[in-house]
């Protein structure tokens, strides 16, 4: 056992992410998501909009379209998905100087496009464009995941045909009593502690993975372990999103006060 301990500390430098009781820094169990609360149709101007908070990460998403594509972007085969990721200047602990246009936001926009294009039935709207705008109001780890989940809800609200819900989740790695314990839905503190962060966007109902990204190093023996935890998180999130959509639609039928003739 003693030799194993030495190996642990060699494998996992930095602070302990799990307490001796097996709880995380914010009191969650390793396989527990942060609380997700969401709402569809928060704005009236966009064709679809959604608000989603995952713990202290809060994201707004708006969808415009499908509409005629701008000439430079137009494609005759499939709809062009245009994403913009932007963070409010007060969203992080330290003030940001620019809400968008920096390297990180551009990369995030690309990743969003990749995940969302996989879910949208793009072949239905040739020569058209769908705009998806993400505004991060508060970032506390997992901003990309919250953005993907919010964008899915906004797309559903806009009535864009999807193959399946696309959900994103992060997972990390920690050790508890000598055995590996992958952590689900990594918060900002755990992210900053320097462990591995695996981000997965998947279509849980088909089981396929739309985007996978990993930072820091992880022994390949444990990769399978961490990935399955992240995919489990995606499946859990899908249940929550599906319930939100159903609740929203049920509410819409009973509460509908605007009748267009």
């Amino acid at each position: 056992m003693a030799t194993l301990r030495v190996m642990d500390s060699f494998l996992m430098p930095g602070p302990d992410l799990l307490s001796s009781q097996g709880l995380r820094l914010d009191g969650r169990r390793p396989n527990e998501l942060r609380r997700i609360r969401c709402k569809l149709g928060v704005f009236t101007q966009p064709d679809g909009s959604a608000y989603l908070e995952q713990g202290n990460t809060k994201v707004l998403a708006a969808v415009y379209g499908p509409h005629q594509a701008s000439k430079s972007k137009s494609s005759t085969e499939a709809v062009v998905v245009n994403c913009q990721y932007s963070m409010a200047t007060f969203s992080t602990g330290e003030r940001k100087n620019r809400p968008r246009g920096d390297r990180k936001s551009l990369e995030m926009s690309l990743h969003l496009r990749q995940a969302l294009t996989a879910a949208i039935k793009t072949e239905l709207y040739p020569r058209s464009q769908i705009d998806i705008y993400i505004e991060v109001l508060q970032a506390d780890g997992g901003a990309y995941c919250a953005s993907v989940n919010a964008a899915t809800l906004a797309l559903v609200d806009a009535g864009v045909p999807l193959r399946a819900y696309v959900c994103a989740c992060t997972a990390s790695m920690a050790w508890h009593g000598g055995s590996p314990a992958p952590l689900l839905d990594v918060g900002h503190v755990e992210e900053a502690a320097g462990g591995v962060v695996l981000t997965v966007a998947s279509l849980p109902s088909t089981g396929s993975i739309a985007l996978l990204e990993m930072s820091h190093r992880l022994h390949s023996d444990y990769f399978e372990n961490v990935l399955s935890r992240a995919l489990q998180g995606c499946r859990d999130i899908e249940v929550i999103l599906d319930k939100a959509v159903r609740d929203h639609l049920a509410e819409g039928w009973t509460k509908q006060d605007v009748v267009t003739v």
């Binding site: 704005f43 245009n82 913009q84 968008r100 705008y133 505004e135």
Partner: peptide
């Protein structure tokens, strides 16, 4: 004062 017109408001605000 810093004002940011989010593209959520209208697609015209995208980018700059």
């Amino acid at each position: 004062f810093f004002v940011d017109c989010s593209a959520n408001a209208t697609p015209e605000f995208e980018g700059r």
